[in-house]
């Protein structure tokens, strides 16, 4: 069945609507004026100089990237452990545990921000890097668990049983048999967690302090009191970096692993 004309018109308009802010941001970043506007009235690189010459922006970027990296690795390891532990649990234990792991998805972020603030304040670590890190690890957990559980489920159990029958210890079975087959799930978990942590602002804005800030929260703070194109220049740099990262990922591991994972999930359900 071919899709009808009205559907193609709606789809076409939306495919222009969705990437629109990308175009606006990139265009506005080259504006010589001191107010963010689109189309830009001319061409200049002054806002790029302003960003790269400013210690605070660079520090916020380093903090965000560092937290996202460590949070992604931590969450992925915790999710991997949980998925392996639940693989052979009874279906009742498994469904209870999975409901709990996915529970943070059911809570609105504005409420979670206050919940973390109240808990971290009681522990006297609000406004620190540790507090933000803990909140990100908790928020990323459901997103890391799902792809790993899906790809673990796809592995034919007879292969790991064969490994055990042939005398491998559980540890050997995991490192030599299961781990390589889990690669797509692990890659997806790392990528999702990194993106979520790096972009998180709703919860994080309550948890940063005078000595510690993340890039998205700093961008929000900057936008709240000035409208210069600094923010557009930062975003354009990030777009270029993400684009570069995707190309490198494609060269090194191949983006096909994500599509394979998606198709595997479909075949599984």
């Amino acid at each position: 069945m071919r899709t009808g004309l009205p559907i193609r018109i709606i789809a076409g308009l939306l495919l222009v609507f969705l990437p629109a802010p990308l175009v606006i941001v990139i265009g506005a970043s080259f504006s010589p004026g001191s107010v963010l506007q689109f189309p830009p009235p001319g061409f200049s690189l002054r806002w790029y100089e302003a960003v790269l010459g400013n210690h605070e922006w660079v520090m916020a970027f380093v903090a965000s990237a560092g937290i996202a990296l460590v949070a992604a690795v931590t969450t992925t390891l915790a999710a991997l452990g949980a998925a392996l532990a639940l693989e052979r649990a009874s279906s009742r234990v498994r469904s209870v545990a999975e409901t709990m792991i996915l529970a943070p998805l059911l809570f609105p972020h504005a409420a979670l921000g206050i919940a973390f603030l109240s808990w971290l304040a009681a522990l006297k670590v609000n406004g620190t890097m540790i507090g933000v890190f803990v909140s990100h690890v908790v928020l990323c957990a459901p997103f890391a668990y799902r792809p790993i559980a899906v790809s673990l489920h796809q592995i034919d159990r007879s292969i790991s049983e064969a490994s055990e029958i042939l005398g491998a210890s559980p540890r050997q079975t995991i490192t030599a048999v299961i781990a390589p087959m889990l690669r797509p799930g692990l890659a997806a978990a790392l990528l999702f967690s990194f993106i979520i942590s790096f972009d998180e602002v709703t919860v994080t804005m309550f948890l940063v302090g005078p000595d510690f800030n993340t890039l998205p929260v700093k961008i929000y703070g900057h936008l709240a009191d000035s409208a210069d194109p600094v923010v557009a220049a930062i975003s354009t740099i990030l777009i270029a970096m993400t684009g570069g990262l995707i190309i490198i990922l494609d060269r090194v591991v191949g983006l096909a692993i994500f599509i394979d994972l998606e198709e595997g999930a479909r075949a599984h359900t």
Binding site: P21, I195, S235
Partner: peptide
């Protein structure tokens, strides 16, 4: 890729794009 391209930009900046428009 076009559909998820907004995810390349922070939600803060995306929203600001709408303020500009």
């Amino acid at each position: 890729i076009l559909v998820i391209s907004p995810w390349l930009v922070s939600i803060v900046v995306r929203t600001f794009g709408w303020m500009v428009l």
